[in-house]
Nucleic acid binder design. Structure first.
Lengths: 205, 205, 205, 205
DNA sequence: CATGAATGAGAATTCATTCAT
DNA sequence: CATGAATGAATTCTCATTCAT
């Protein structure tokens, strides 16, 4: 029932009232993801939390996966913007890298639903494909930014580098998020060290 | 429906016939995970695929998550054994590391359901806790092995190191699995380079 | 949900613009009936096809069945007029009968929604009663016309005759409509032969 | 949602208990068809009336239309048997024809759901196709029997004759069913007269 | 009078789980 | 211990209908 479902929104909200409705749906989804997790996420719960009728939800989204996908879109937009900012040329690359990791961590920690959504997007077959595309975009953006850091090499190489860094971060950040402050610092320190060393090999080696 | 369910098997299979039943259930689960994914996995489908009656499934497992957990257990056992082997002292650490990564990749690529299960275990709230414990064990094992590689530092430090390496690998390996041969090689090369550089800092620095 | 609903239009369209709205609704209904059938016919779809807001539809019709009923009314008017024309006295009765059947066939074939509506009206409990009345009117009209053909007998007898002829036609015409040209000709020939023979027994016997 | 749905039963009942369940479902469907009509027929109501869980219904049928289709199948079997009996060679054709019409009337009058189902099958787009096939079988059976009555002509001709007779009957019989005894007699007399005259033209003309 | 948007109430369908044999 | 069958309890999704502007 899930594989290959339509994920496109049914209709874009036109007026302000409608935009608000969609907004509430997405916000509710995000908070529920954090509170009960994907397994127990369902359209009724979303609608209830959003204080919206289920039918309204279905007016805008063809199914539950489409809601998640819209939420992901929204978050990805924010994220790409953040990356673009952090990867602008100028400054010392090590500091820039740390800034980027910090920003990532902040998203994972304080964006409700972000961490949960990240893992759901790549684990649910229904969403995986679209998530792959989105990750590819993220990868490209970072790969491009690496040039400014001083990394040479073909686009393909840089994308592989970016991807490996990205995956390492995507694995460690949720841990850091859930960990206590000491453990979090430790994990972030190690992650940073690993990525810095890795890039240093390309930039200074 | 999902949070905090009993995950322990209901009864250990006694006779050989019973053991076979359980085995078929787990194997069916693994193959279904690969074919239809977690979203569409359900006990009836598992039983059908296993050519076993659903009621039999419930004889051994209290619920759906317990099946996944048993499957994870089985795979984790294999995996820990593999790690223990690959991390035995002796030999050049760089080669050992590569061997370890190779072995990991082989599991991801050829163990049916392994990659899928890995992501499911950490995304489903019902299973996350037990998965965390299991990952902790894996981490400890690697952390212990790092000593043999020549890494110094407290147990806590080594565990952080191990964990970061582990997460990076858990992120990249599924990608490598799905990629074509060229891309796979490239990703593995970068992953190896990153982890080697990282460890080198501890061992040779 | 369906039995015994008010079927009367809520308000007659006053201005020309309003009349156009109602018109579009009915036309849309007719075409949708042909395209998707009664099972999938719904007010939202009608409104969309009519390029009219659903709320406007409810301005003129109290519910879905009332729309169908209005459409039926409109078609029945046309039909009764047609019958009145074809059954006017004068000429050879056999030719008149053929003319009548031809005219019926034309309606079934070329009036969008006509054939579909005919069957819907007699199958849906909500509409059956009003359809019965309408068929009774049709029957009476034909029964009256039979006098001009030379059929004798009481009004009741003539109505039974008319009704039997009518039902036979209502069964065969939709078939003829869907059939290819050869089969259509054959069916119409047999229907004509049956009805002619039947009437001949009353007129010439 | 209705066009082109799967109509095949999901699984044939194996044991006696299962057969009973399916039976109750079909019987409940038949009685509901008579009582509330197709518009208000829904799987919940069927299950309730059958004193069976809805899920059981879905164990055997993929959807509501499949239930109707199974019911139609069951009735059609009975009906074809009846026709075969009534059309056996021997005896005076006029009497045989009357016997056949009587038998038809009995089905329409006393088989619960039969009349309603007949009209539903040909009006619902989802079922129409399969009903057409079934009617074709009925037509063929009658066309074959016509030979025994003394009707000559090609198979195609006889089928057209049979079909026209069939449609006339299918139109008049439901009326007769709903009519009072006097009106019923009158309608049946006229129907018989029409069909007899029609066939006489082929047999004795 | 029209429209965008919303919603109550239900209907279809599924699925984890249990029961009787 | 296995199996055919059943079922409670959701969950997804739809649709006729109304409201606010």
């Amino acid at each position: 029932m899930s594989t290959h479902q339509p994920l496109e929104p049914r209709r874009r909200p036109a007026g302000a009232r409608a935009r608000k409705t969609v907004d509430r749906i997405l916000t509710a989804t995000a908070s529920l993801l954090d509170e009960v997790g994907f397994d127990d996420l369902n359209t009724n719960a979303i609608a209830e939390r959003a204080e919206v009728n289920v039918a309204s939800l279905y007016q805008y989204f063809p199914n539950k996966y489409a809601v998640l996908m819209a939420l992901a879109d929204r978050m990805r937009d924010e994220q790409l913007e953040m990356i673009a900012t952090e990867m602008q040329p100028g400054g010392v690359w090590r500091e820039r890298l740390r800034g980027l990791l910090d920003a990532y961590l902040r998203m994972f920690v304080s964006r409700p639903g972000f961490a949960e959504l990240a893992v759901v997007m790549s684990s649910s077959p229904a969403l995986r494909e679209v998530d792959a595309a989105s990750l590819a975009a993220e990868t490209r953006l970072i790969a491009d930014g690496l040039v400014a850091y001083g990394v040479e090499g073909s686009r393909g190489e840089r994308e592989a580098i970016a991807r490996v860094m990205l995956e390492a971060s995507r694995g460690v950040l949720p841990l850091a998020r859930r960990a206590g402050p000491t453990q979090r610092k430790r994990l972030m320190r190690e992650l940073t060290r690993m990525l810095e060393g890795y890039l240093a090999g390309y930039i200074e080696g």
